[in-house]
Write a protein that binds this DNA or RNA. Sequence first.
DNA 1: TACAATTTTGCAATGACGTTGCAAATATTA
DNA 2: TAATATTTGCAACGTCATTGCAAAATTGTA
Lengths: 139, 139
Amino acid sequence: MSEPIRELLKKNHMSITDSRLQILDLFYHAPGALAHADIEKKASDKIDRVTIYRTLQTFEEKGLIHTIPSADNSVKYALCKDHCAEGHHHDNHVHFVCEQCSKTICLEDVLVPEVKLPDGFEPHQSNMVVNGLCNDCRS
Amino acid sequence: MSEPIRELLKKNHMSITDSRLQILDLFYHAPGALAHADIEKKASDKIDRVTIYRTLQTFEEKGLIHTIPSADNSVKYALCKDHCAEGHHHDNHVHFVCEQCSKTICLEDVLVPEVKLPDGFEPHQSNMVVNGLCNDCRS
DNA sequence: TACAATTTTGCAATGACGTTGCAAATATTA
DNA sequence: TAATATTTGCAACGTCATTGCAAAATTGTA
């Protein structure tokens, strides 16, 4: 399967393993961001919890995925589009979390706006999360 | 001590207890937002972990404090200024997290800007967190 | 002020979550 | 194909958060 996924791993100097192929594949077919638990559930062959933690960590370090901050206490991950290099994320888009289905979606085209901070604060990076209803859940 | 704090509890229909007085007092004298662990450490009389959890939850439900989303996996709480009513937060200001001292500060005067979402998304609430250096840590 | 009713607290037990060390399994390189 | 390097899975561990329940504290009322 999934020649392009193999290529992606190769390009980023990672060994090609079943777990990694499977997890990356999940991300490519997921409707939104995935939490550790989602992956544990959805993985067809069962992958060890620890392997999932380590794989996510590796993917993040290599710039394949990024974390999404959340108001509750859970970390979600989503694919980085295009431009993320190793150790250097360009994750400056707005994230949307549906209050109904709790799907988490990257709004790649909506950039986080600049804000003017009070004197003394030196901004480096901004995150913005919008909560509401997604298209599927309005009705 | 702290007649105004007692008043605040009374006004919100909460029993006045030592734990609550002490925790509220911590919030009023804290430089920024507090995590559960901070409270556990700073409380002069030792308060049971469980009590702290329950107190924070109660305060949040009553609109005295609000949670601040974070990129890592920790929840912090900060006082709501003025206008929060029971179950109805007006927590629409930007939060700042210092990368150095990891102090978390409510920028009450910086409102989260509106963003235009793609069709189909119905926004209800927005959160924005800016990371960088605070005044004390620049030098 | 004292008593009954309600609320809150602290302890114990439990479970979810995340990390680490290490040996076995797998992938890569030559 | 063999040697080397990497990754995986298991076991053990520690932290964090939640729940039930009895004891303690607070509140409302007489």
